[in-house]
């Protein structure tokens, strides 16, 4: 890649590819840029006319961000905090449990191991949407409706993460576990002190996958959360999308605030983002 062109034909190919991908990149980035532009445009015009060329090239209006940081938009920051708390706790819990399971499936010999791995693959195949009505009833019975825990519960042991950790652990040296045993480590100690540090890249990838999924998760929180105070960001922002709303300023500036931190994180940790989001294709 990136070899210099040797003749005119190759030069043409090289230029052609760059033009093509410049257009593709522009298409990919255009909506994101538009969102930023929209957040600096008068929101009532946006809702009435959509994003117009005029708005695109007219000056900056700060009213959306002023509204976002004013006292009336307490609800938005409440959603932001809910999303942060839920994603944060979920990352910690799901990484802890999923890595333990994946680790055991990869590095121990025990009865039922193949069966359990089969179950992991099976759960990967069953769409969540089919289970959601009984799960919702279960949450009502457990009195977990409208709670953080209710949103998190179905995602705590993520089969995709278990699968990913298992594949990753298959490549770790088993001998280290033996030497840990000789040194008198407990099995749990071997996991946390010797093996887990070797799994750091996989932890990073899965933290990003789980974090992003719960940050952007919509359907399940929509079911479980009832009061405005408990909404996560996507659920809360969706309530602002109605044609009869009066909070459009917050819709646009709030949407920007919801994705910009993620994009900044992406620019710093690109490798782990890519590993996390393409983890489904790890060879079995």
């Amino acid at each position: 890649m990136g070899e210099p062109a040797r003749n005119t034909k190759e030069k043409l190919i090289s230029v052609g590819l760059i033009v093509l991908f410049s257009l593709v990149s522009l298409t990919a980035l255009f909506p994101v840029i538009s969102l930023v532009v929209a957040s600096f445009s008068p929101s009532t015009d946006l809702m009435r006319f959509g994003l117009t060329a005029e708005l695109f090239f007219s000056g900056f209006v700060m009213e959306n961000f002023q509204a976002l940081f004013s006292a009336e938009s307490g609800a938005y920051w409440r959603w932001y905090m809910n999303s942060l708390i839920i994603s944060g706790i979920l990352i910690v819990l799901s990484l802890f449990f999923s890595s333990m399971v994946g680790y055991a499936l990869a590095l121990y010999e025990f009865k039922g191991k193949r069966f359990i791995f089969l179950l992991v693959l099976l759960i990967l195949m069953i769409p969540f949407e089919i289970l959601m009505l009984p799960l919702y009833t279960l949450m009502i019975n457990l009195r977990l409706v409208d709670s953080y825990f209710g949103v998190m519960l179905p995602l705590i042991v993520a089969p995709i993460a278990v699968f990913f950790f298992r594949q990753y652990c298959l490549g770790l040296p088993k001998e280290l576990m033996e030497s840990g045993r000789v040194d008198g480590c407990t099995e749990f100690g071997i996991f946390t002190r010797i093996m887990a540090p070797l799994m750091l890249p996989s932890f990073a990838a899965m933290a990003i996958l789980q974090g992003l999924q719960s940050w952007n998760n919509f359907l399940w929180p929509l079911l479980v959360l009832r009061s405005n105070d408990m909404f996560t960001l996507p659920v809360g922002l969706a309530t602002l999308l109605t044609p009869y709303g009066n909070n459009y300023e917050i819709l646009f500036s709030g949407s920007v605030m919801a994705i910009i931190p993620i994009i900044v994180l992406f620019l710093f940790f690109q490798r782990f983002f890519i590993a996390g989001l393409t983890s489904g294709g790890v060879k079995g």
């Binding site: 994101v32 969102l35 940050w215 919509f218 922002l237 919801a258 993620i262 992406f266 983002f273």
Partner: peptide, 10 residues
């Protein structure tokens, strides 16, 4: 890749 970071709602 950046579009994958956005939520469907946003």
């Amino acid at each position: 890749f950046i579009p994958a970071l956005t939520s469907v709602i946003v």
